[in-house]
Write a protein that binds this DNA or RNA. Structure first.
Lengths: 210, 210
DNA sequence: ACCTGAACACCGTTCAAGT
DNA sequence: ACCTGAACACCGTTCAAGT
């Protein structure tokens, strides 16, 4: 099959001087990068593999991303955005704050199981050039902060949200990295822990006053 | 200065055929690797830099470590062992299980602040060849499991330990990765969360029975 | 205007040759 | 027995040259 592009087709001088149409997009590059990370971990993310998947050569990628770390940043931000979408959807499914927290935690854990490599990349150590832009995480914090505030009271919304997200994140990361090696039922530990956290957060830790 | 080794010094044939004395040790290599990781993150860990620091050339390292991932594994296991030592020391400092849990959490957080890069490497995503050997994490679990069992009751020791370690780990990782960007007092959130966790774990979540 | 081959620096790893 | 220079494959990145 002969390759067809504007130079084969162009009939007059003006047409053959037209800018080359773009052969890929940033979105396609990020999607390819995400798939590579998910398939083989962040170490397997090479510019060449990304280029092959989107149908260009490696140097062309530098038209859309600054460097490899920048591409990692885009994958991380994509993951954070997806987390935001799912948390919001979970929160919208109910009005009861306890049920909402359970739904958000379940949704986050489900996403982590769907995309374990991207999840670990997102919350693991990132080189400076790969850290998400200011505002990316803040966008996700909304529903968690709101429900935490409703459970713990506005005065303790931030502490409660941090306690909850720390546990969720920590549990998921230990689960994904295979840190739970002492047997037992991990799902049961998750349910037990989530119930314990919700109980502890409710009413701003009033019971803890001496 | 002239280089001095057994070949310069050897006076008889037997001595000059003696095996070359080892010019470095696995322990020195791991210490150098740890320092490099701590100084510049895991990405900055190159075989050449390790070799330079211990005074040999890169190929010599392969006499002691299988490959770069194996060296990362040794750094991770070193970090886990250090965590174990500190947790045990913290647990030994008191007989009250609540105070012991606080002491262990403080000790873990202090170590994470001392060696943020090694800590994040240890609990971040690791390629298969860099994962710690079976038994490494189990060695550390002891004191946490014991105190969790005393607080939550033996029937819930494992769930309680997992809830506690998930929160500790999650909090520390979020703190280290700069995820707490909404202002507020991070130390206060830590204290609030720890108190909440201890309260939630105590008595096996009895209050949660409907 | 976009894309690419060629080139460069760097890295992990192997191995024959040194001592 | 240990160490190393040389070599190889691979990778990120740049850039002049193509279309």
């Amino acid at each position: 099959m002969a390759t067809v592009n504007s130079y084969d087709v162009g009939q007059n001088p003006e047409e053959s001087l037209m800018p080359t149409p773009e052969r890929t997009t940033t979105a396609a590059i990020v999607a390819a990068a995400r798939a590579i990370v998910e398939a083989g971990g962040a170490d397997s993310l090479t510019m060449k593999e990304v280029a092959t998947r989107v149908g260009v050569r490696a140097p062309s990628l530098y038209k859309r991303v600054r460097d490899r770390n920048d591409l990692i940043r885009l994958v991380v931000e994509d993951t954070v955005d997806e987390i935001g979408v799912r948390l919001q959807a979970a929160a919208d499914r109910t009005v009861d704050p306890r049920a909402a927290v359970v739904a958000m935690a379940d949704a986050l854990r489900a996403l982590a199981h769907e995309r374990p490599q991207c999840y670990q990349l997102t919350f693991g150590p990132l080189p400076p050039g790969a850290r998400p832009e200011r505002g990316t995480l803040e966008r996700v914090a909304g529903p968690v902060l709101e429900m935490s505030g409703r459970l713990a009271g506005e005065d303790h919304a931030l502490e409660a949200a941090r306690t909850l997200t720390a546990w969720m994140n920590g549990f998921i990361q230990m689960e994904l990295s295979g840190a739970f090696r002492l047997g037992g039922d991990v799902d049961a530990a998750y349910a037990w822990g989530l119930a314990a956290l919700i109980e502890a957060i409710t009413n701003g830790g009033e019971r803890r006053r001496d």
